[in-house]
């Protein structure tokens, strides 16, 4: 008998972390957490409202974090849930960021806005396993200080790696102001053979960040990106996420840039 992948399972909301009024992290009970890979995603499944693919932003003992921006039917409904209630999810889906790909590298992660959530678990991983990389830097951007996510985590990361936090607008005397691309030239790189980068964010930001990296000397095959597309199933069946011969939900959402750059919608 073939399992019915479309049936979501019930999961308890263990904790809700409210970063901004628009962005909350839901820590969800999930027994299989240890097999979840950073960058994979779940389908948040609320019968009557629909489903929404949400990246894993943190992996616990028996839980996964889903950081959600409230933007439409499903996500708005989710925001009515508090800790202790149950909701439905299914997953995990997709390939994710495979830690082995980045071992012994000088790793740079560039992320913008909610783009930080899919990479948060991989930042956490190398933050906690500092010895597995030669160096670790992150450049993250948000619209303004009020829009910043994961404030507590940034405090910890500040001790574990080189953190550049920048805002599109704000007080220039108190914080970095400008796009993430502005800080690419100042990243310290010893050997470009070892330099690897992960870029996640809105399409336009990814485009310019990758351009900046290549100009800087990063090799295309050492850059990874994560794509988002319309999705209905997450299972390679509905066809919405297809680009060329690639199904983002099955073959991605994480792509080496040599593959990802050729995807034409």
């Amino acid at each position: 008998m073939i399992t019915n992948e479309y049936l979501p399972f019930s999961s308890k909301v263990l904790k809700v972390t409210k970063h901004t009024p628009m962005e909350h992290t839901y820590t969800m009970e999930f027994a299989g957490a240890k097999d979840v890979v950073p960058g994979q995603f779940f389908e948040l499944s609320l019968p009557k409202y629909g489903e929404a693919p949400i990246s894993v932003s943190g992996i616990g003992e028996n839980s996964v974090d889903l950081t959600v921006r409230s933007i439409g039917v499903v996500t708005d409904e989710l925001f009515k849930y508090e800790a202790g209630r149950h909701l439905y999810i299914r997953g995990p889906y997709g390939n994710g960021f495979i830690a082995d790909d980045y071992k012994d590298s000088e790793l740079l992660v560039i992320a913008g806005g909610t783009g930080v959530s899919p990479v948060k678990a991989i930042i956490d991983y190398f933050g906690n396993h500092n010895d597995e990389v030669k160096s670790m830097s992150i450049i993250t951007g948000f619209k303004s200080k009020d829009d910043q996510l994961f404030r507590e985590d940034f405090k910890r990361w500040g001790k574990q790696m080189n953190v550049t936090l920048t805002f599109d607008r704000g007080d220039e005397t108190k914080e970095n102001i400008g796009l993430v691309t502005k800080y690419i030239p100042s990243v310290k790189v010893n050997n470009f053979d070892d330099a690897k980068a992960i870029v996640v964010g809105p399409p336009i930001m990814m485009k310019f960040a990758v351009k900046g990296l290549i100009e800087r000397g990063y090799k295309e095959e050492n850059i990874w990106i994560s794509h988002e597309r319309r999705m209905s199933c997450g299972l390679g069946k509905c066809g919405h996420c297809r680009v060329n011969s690639t199904y983002i939900c099955l073959d991605g959402p994480v792509f080496n840039y040599t593959v990802g750059k050729d995807l034409i919608d």
Binding site: I2, T3, N4, E5, L235, G236, K237, L250
Partner: peptide
Amino acid sequence: QMFMENGKPDFYYTR
């Protein structure tokens, strides 16, 4: 190909 090979087999199609 779409429903049995693209990812895991589809429950509804298969039946």
